[in-house]
Design a protein around this nucleic acid. Sequence first.
RNA 1: GGGCGUGUAGCUCAAUUGGCAGAGCAGUGGCCUUUUAAGCCAUUGGUUGGGGGUUCGAUUCCCUCCACGCUCACCA
Length: 448
Amino acid sequence: MTVGGRIVRQNLKGKVYFAHIEDGTGRLQLFVRIDNVGEQTYEMIRRQIDLGDFVQAGGTMMRTRRGEVSVMVDEFVLLAKALSPLPVIKERVLEDGTLERYGAFSDVEERYRQRYADLAVNPDVREVFRKRARVVRALRDFLDAEGYLEVETPILQPIYGGAAARPFVTHHNQLHQDLYLRISFELYLKRLLVGMYDAVYEIGRDFRNEGVSFKHNPEFTQLEFYEAYTDYHGMMDITERMIAYVAEQVHGSTQISYQGHTIELAPPWRRVTLREVIREHTGIDYMQHRDAPSLLQAMQAAGIQAAPKDTWGKLVDTLLGEVEPTLIQPTFILDYPRDISPFAKMVPGDDFHVERFELFIGGMELGNAFTELNDPLDQEARFLELQKLYRADDEEANPLDEDYLRAMRYGMPPCGGCGVGVDRLTMLMTDKSSIREVLLFPHLRERR
RNA sequence: GGGCGUGUAGCUCAAUUGGCAGAGCAGUGGCCUUUUAAGCCAUUGGUUGGGGGUUCGAUUCCCUCCACGCUCACCA
């Protein structure tokens, strides 16, 4: 038989040589005897072979005296040379079966900057990204089975929109046109509902020119899905089934462990209004404080810090921020104030709230959804209102997207839409507390 | 951007009140025909993140810059 792989451990003795080689399928020991390969090959091994080299060996299966299945080698070839040594990690299986590790490649910065080395020597890191692939596949399988159509919409957009975030700007030389890297897919996907697709989704990269943190990266992977003839209640149903399905596919169970918490993802999930959850947690009922100065006063009285110049909507958001870390079990927070939700339909009979929910698991926001606003006149009014709210130089202001309004004027079916952060979902499924642990090449400042 | 913390050999880490910068692994040379954290002998390897200051003397104290981590702000 012939085997190949990378040398991850070796033990050169006078006339015998042991090496463990590893490839994507696992590890195997090679047992080389000078009698079997000849003096010339043995001398080549002695002089040239290092940890990290890729080699190929031919021989027969055997078992060493210590009982390890190995290949008794009669042919040994160097396939590719490692010039720089990889960090060496040694490990030992203790009597009770636990693995003791000696040394490691654990410096976080170096692991991210040289992810190839991190992956090469840390199998558990490789496993994280296998799980990530399973998460994405599970999302696709689920939505495909639900009758959704996967689509791809522009990343380079002449007008950005669909979220409140600062964009990255680029330029098309020949067209003499500034273009923006998308901050969301929302407005393009909803155009497709106008175009008579009943249900569409896209998994792709969004770009936001904002701060970096344990849960923010300038580019991140988003899933957005939109379905006609449903509303945010329908989106809650499908979202909780979808994430439970992902957990089943990745873990074989809807129960997961995250940062020391046991989280049950089987539906149904808790559903509570924003007003109620804030009142429950902070004692403040924002409906009793309907303007910014009054709400600010109530918050200060409760010892919650807020910027005096914040809008009322921003203050409500700050209150939600107080609640967020406590939302460990999956929770839908529903019915948000209208003025922080420009693409959501009003709650019938309530001139204050819109049909919107955000989804929290493990103390993190994982998703955001609405009953989509499908009235072009209302949408235009919201755009104009927003423009007044933001100063002209504020990049977070959504530019008025006239083409989107044109699409809506042809008639948009009633629909629900939801966005889910795929990186954060992966963090949840891999028990990682930093988004950088689930991004192969996270953004780092340039080293000077 | 603010606060706190970290930065020493390729990797993981030491270094007493400010007193010659060290270990294990990896590497190099040697011994060893069943090793598996192999072992034994020898050995290379450092602008202690960069720059400046205090001092007879700085990894250690001070200033500054850089990077990273945590955190706050920001992120509908």
